[in-house]
Design a protein around this nucleic acid. Structure first.
Lengths: 109, 109
DNA sequence: ATATATTTATTCTATAATCAGAATAAATAG
DNA sequence: CTATTTATTCTGATTATAGAATAAATATAT
């Protein structure tokens, strides 16, 4: 079974967590906030396309909204396959991470 | 702070878990076993070099061993920086994974 | 003994995949 | 009708991957 790349993992988790509001811009914003790292536009849309091609995501085009710049958005939703693949990744990660000593706090600077 | 790529994450975790026996071939074997996926030689050695360049790993060359093909190996060890970066990744992952429903078992086929 | 084969290990390189950000599109506001 | 805002698509440059080539050791055959 496929081991997701980092960007694929982050995109699927963002789609899951954003629920009904998951589209390109909101997904990117969510990932930047959660990771504290700037991800380029391409780093989000390219994996979105790939995950859709693989049937880990489905997509529907929303209606335009009556606000400045409110062009229609492409919304994404996880498929059962996508959820299954995420859970598989989790089980692999858990088996590899279990022996790492927890430093107890995040020492990022 | 850097978010590790998948191959970088797997390599660092393998080095941690293999302890004194962490060198190219054993690292690759460990990752293939744990993930159930074939990783090419390049997919291991390239991130090893990069992680060493970034000072997340240190390396020493061992002595040849008296067995067929027993040429000397390059052993790797995690630095405090490497461990810190791994723990940072863990904290980011935990905050994103916490809301995912656990399917309860790994359904990989 | 020494040349050839075999095994383990790493380095190298062409191809494939990913990323960064410019370009384009589609909406409303002025 | 021009400017501004939000959103997505596109493309050159960078990075990562697959696996061939090379290196360094011991084993084996003549």
């Amino acid at each position: 079974m496929k081991i997701l790349s980092r960007s694929e993992e982050l995109v699927l988790l963002a789609v899951w967590n954003l629920q009904k509001d998951a589209y390109g811009v909101s997904i990117r914003k969510y990932i930047i906030e959660k990771t504290g790292v700037n991800w380029s536009i391409g780093a989000i849309y390219v994996p979105l396309d790939r995950l859709t091609k693989w049937k880990f995501l489905t997509t529907v085009t929303g209606d335009p909204t009556p606000e400045r710049g409110g062009r229609s958005k492409r919304y994404y939703k996880l498929t059962p396959e996508g959820l299954k693949t995420l859970n598989h990744l989790r089980s692999v990660q858990e088996s590899m991470w279990s022996t790492l000593p927890d430093l107890g706090w995040d020492q990022s600077s």
